[in-house]
Design a protein around this nucleic acid. Structure first.
Lengths: 139, 139
DNA sequence: TTTGCAAGTGCGAATCATTTGCAACAAAGA
DNA sequence: TCTTTGTTGCAAATGATTCGCACTTGCAAA
């Protein structure tokens, strides 16, 4: 048997007191199916594939609200646009393939631990962090 | 005695075939004196303090050219504007104090080493990387 | 089931940092 | 000094994101 399922985004939003509109249903649905790191334009493209009437301003507003409540994660890599992914179960960092633009997730307990240590040494407490490694495939 | 001095930015630019105009002399001078991570507006403010006639478009153009030739380093932290610092002698990463906006540099050989290792494990070669730790001061 | 109304939406205009086109200007080599 | 190009200032363009506002719609309470 599988572990406890996380409630759907729609349910989580309803719990947070959001009105579930037709547009939001579509937007949340698309996000839930996301297994990459699309930017707003790409998300809007996917959303329009289901309901062509959803305005991009609505997409922006919804994404901001979701990110504010930590229901999705927002990134900005070196191309300068915002990219989104569903809230991950566990923190991870990213490789970005500079040749293809592909984003690959990775986890390193060791690196996390060293960050804590060095922050502590400097008298800081970590609020969040971002590690992006720009790479190319080794021949 | 001190080690070999790095040639001034003006000299480096001249070596790269740039024309050394009055504006550039001022811009390069201000950058050379920089020991923080100012954004373009702040740099322009400092430059205007010396020569009020330097247009911000010129500042942008010069910064881009410098960054293209790796004579300065460009960052974009979570506030969404470009910030610059003189090309560092050695790679370092950044703490960003979320309460004050202050940027603090740090170096960790250990973290660098682990990044190499994990990249290798994934079949990648590192092109560059960026580690930003958003922190607040520990009480 | 209807209704009231605050929350949500579409649309176009506004914003903000950054870039660009172009005519005037000025380094630097001949 | 003259000539050739690279640079500059200015204003207009860009491109991603946000905002104002009139219209619409979920949904709680009647």
């Amino acid at each position: 048997m599988t572990g406890t399922e996380r409630p759907s985004l729609v349910e989580q939003c309803r719990d947070n007191g959001w009105r579930i509109t037709g547009q939001r249903r579509v937007i949340l649905d698309v996000i839930e199916k996301t297994d990459d790191h699309p930017d707003v334009e790409e998300l809007h493209r996917r959303i329009r594939g289901i309901d062509p009437g959803v305005n991009i301003a609505t997409v922006y507003r919804t994404l901001n609200k979701l990110a504010d409540e930590n229901l999705i994660e927002r990134h900005m890599f070196d191309d300068g646009r915002l990219r989104y992914e569903p809230a991950p179960d566990a923190h991870h960092d990213h490789f970005i393939d500079v040749e293809t633009g592909e984003v690959i997730e990775f986890v390193s307990e060791d690196i996390e631990r060293m960050q804590d240590e060095i922050a502590r040494k400097h008298g800081f407490e970590i609020v969040s962090h971002k590690l992006e490694i720009y790479v190319k495939r080794r021949p």
